[in-house]
């Protein structure tokens, strides 16, 4: 089980590094989308502080979505996916590795950059930490749910927009509790409930999404 996991994780991270310009596009998209809102809603500091967490979350969600179709499509076109399906190792192992590599190369940079955007919206230091923590728990869920959609839409015409339609509704709960955690912290209710719910969601996604994606890939390749 470990062989295929490590081989795929190492290769995908190496590929992400070699095509880092693509990753930079997703990251810049995140920054640009989040920077657009003040132009639209005006520059009232209180208002910006109120919408900041939500805007950063929506931008992170869209940036994740932008990078999702790449998760399997290259390997699908080149025939690597066929070879992986014929591996003697269980498909869940290498599908998990692909999702992990995808999150490390697209989700984690978003988490790292988010304090910068939060600062731009005038969030206080405590709120910035809460936002980053919520993104750290939430973005892996986005990658895991997205993997199922990416596997299902593989090889279809207009896969990108279909993928968005398919997975965006599933990502709404993550958005609600992720953005809500900052408000909960600021209003003094405490973070516990939000983080526990998101943590539970992460474990559920970890348990279910890799096997669901593997099953979807097998159907797509049939």
């Amino acid at each position: 089980m470990n062989n295929a996991f490590i081989a795929v994780l190492r290769r995908d991270l190496l590929l992400a590094w070699r095509s880092r310009a693509d990753l930079l596009v997703a990251l810049s998209f995140f920054v640009v989308v989040a920077s657009l809102f003040p132009f639209g809603v005006g520059s009232d500091p209180d208002q910006l502080r109120a919408i900041g967490p939500g805007v950063v979350w929506v931008a992170a969600l869209l940036a994740t979505l932008l990078a999702l179709p790449r998760m399997f499509s290259q390997d699908f076109d080149s025939g690597v996916l066929e070879q992986l399906l014929l591996s003697q190792e269980p498909p869940v192992a290498w599908v998990s590795a692909k999702i992990a590599a995808h999150w490390l190369s697209t989700g984690l940079p978003l988490v790292v950059v988010s304090p910068l955007l939060a600062l731009m919206y005038g969030l206080e230091p405590g709120a910035i930490k809460v936002l980053a923590l919520a993104l750290l728990i939430g973005t892996p869920i986005l990658s895991l749910i997205g993997a199922i959609g990416a596997a299902l839409t593989l090889g279809l015409r207009g896969a990108g927009s279909l993928l968005a339609l398919l997975v965006l509704p599933l990502m709404v709960p993550v958005l609600i509790f992720g953005a809500g955690s900052v408000d909960a912290w600021a209003s003094g209710i405490g973070l516990r409930a939000h983080l526990l719910l998101m943590g539970g969601g992460l474990f559920a996604a970890l348990a279910l999404a890799p096997s669901a994606s593997a099953a979807a890939l097998r159907i797509t390749m049939d």
């Binding site: 062989n3 295929a4 490590i6 081989a7 795929v8 290769r11 190496l14 590929l15 070699r18 095509s19 290259q74 390997d75 080149s78 025939g79 690597v80 066929e82 070879q83 992986l84 014929l86 591996s87 003697q88 190792e89 290498w94």
Partner: peptide, 19 residues
């Protein structure tokens, strides 16, 4: 089943390890 960004050696080693 090759990736264009990897060398033949990396491609082959990956194919064997993944199998």
């Amino acid at each position: 089943a090759l990736n264009d960004l990897l060398t033949p050696l990396e491609n082959l080693h990956f194919a064997c390890a993944a199998a």
